[in-house]
């Protein structure tokens, strides 16, 4: 309960941001940060809790984004309905991919690589199908009305995103204390041992996929409505896949607050590097990458390990 209280207090404080921060720029930075926290947590459900590393999470992000865009542009489906459908498509595609890959017993780096390949397949398909706009991309008509999920006020976008993110973090809070969560951890730590004590690893992993895909899909819906333009590279390219796993791993995988911390630190780092080094192209990214490497060298358990001296995670897995 203490963690729930902490979580709700944190999100309540975050909800005040648009009232306090009147700068569009900083609000934008907050949006990018919360967005990272959302996709990082979505990745964390599958990667951190169920132990299935994905390199292709952009797949579910892209499916959600294209779902809301295509339905809206071609069929006139309201984006609020699109939001539900986008999340459902994200979850559905995740389950389908999971069913196919887990059925054939793919684990570890094999699973990671197959998710990457699926994201590429979707990128290529989106690049060649007329109803996704193919290579030209798809543009949602500018219509800044809340009923069309487009807001004049950046704060409203922020609150929409924050609500999605809260739903995601509450789900993970619930996972932490539910039987499903416990089963996920069992599967992560030793799949064969979990199976021996009667855990249906296949079903557990599918459920993790579904939850993970659902929240990635939601993130995709948000992206589409915020920027109103998608192309196959934006939707299914490696950017979102890398960001999701980066945020979660830096923060500390398998922890409730890890992805949030990871998101805050990485965005602070990115902004800070830019302020420090200004306009020399590439210099800011060199600092960013260097700090990343140093963090792994000196903080191997992620940021979350700083707040809790005794991690619940099983340590020292032998590679």
């Amino acid at each position: 309960m203490k963690r729930l209280f902490l979580l709700l207090a944190l999100f309540a404080a975050m909800a005040l941001v648009p009232l306090v921060v009147r700068s569009e720029f900083w609000l934008n930075v907050c949006i990018l940060t919360v967005f990272s926290a959302l996709i990082g947590q979505a990745w964390n459900i599958l990667g951190g809790y169920a132990g299935q590393f994905s390199f292709g999470h952009a797949l579910f992000f892209g499916v959600g984004a294209y779902a809301v865009a295509v339905l809206q542009v071609h069929l006139g489906v309201n984006p609020w309905i699109g939001l539900i459908l986008g999340a459902a498509f994200g979850a559905g595609v995740a389950v389908a991919v999971g069913w196919l890959t887990f059925r054939y017993g793919l684990r570890g780096s094999y699973f990671a690589l197959v998710t990457l390949a699926f994201a590429e397949v979707f990128r290529i398909l989106a690049n060649s199908t007329p109803w996704t706009g193919a290579g030209e991309g798809i543009m949602i008509k500018l219509s800044p009305r809340p009923s069309m999920m487009q807001f004049k006020d950046l704060g409203h976008y922020y609150w929409l995103l924050l609500a999605m993110t809260l739903a995601c973090y509450l789900t993970v809070w619930w996972l932490d204390r539910s039987r499903l969560g416990a089963r996920m951890l069992a599967v992560r730590d030793n799949e064969d041992a979990a199976a021996a004590i009667g855990v249906d690893a296949f079903a557990v992993k599918l459920q993790a996929m579904a939850l993970s895909g659902l929240f990635m899909g939601l993130a995709g819906v948000f992206y589409a409505q915020r920027y109103l333009y998608l192309d196959p590279g934006i939707a299914f390219g490696p950017t979102e896949s890398v960001e999701a796993l980066l945020v979660a791993i830096v923060g500390g995988i398998g922890t409730l607050f890890g992805p949030l911390m990871g998101a805050v630190v990485l965005h602070a780092l990115s902004e800070g590097a830019q302020v420090a080094l200004g306009s020399l192209p590439g210099a800011n990214m060199v600092i960013y990458g260097t700090v990343l490497v140093l963090m792994v060298l000196f903080m191997p358990r992620g940021l979350a390990s700083l707040t809790r001296p005794r991690s619940r995670r099983k340590g020292g897995r032998d590679a």
């Binding site: 570890g108 780096s109 995988i253 990214m285 060199v286 990458g289 490497v293 020292g316």
Partner: peptide, 19 residues
């Protein structure tokens, strides 16, 4: 960087490529 964890290797090679 490994410290016995796969995800750290992933992160460190990713970080190196960015640098």
């Amino acid at each position: 960087a490994g410290h016995g964890r796969d995800e750290n290797i992933l992160l460190v090679t990713l970080g190196l490529s960015i640098v």
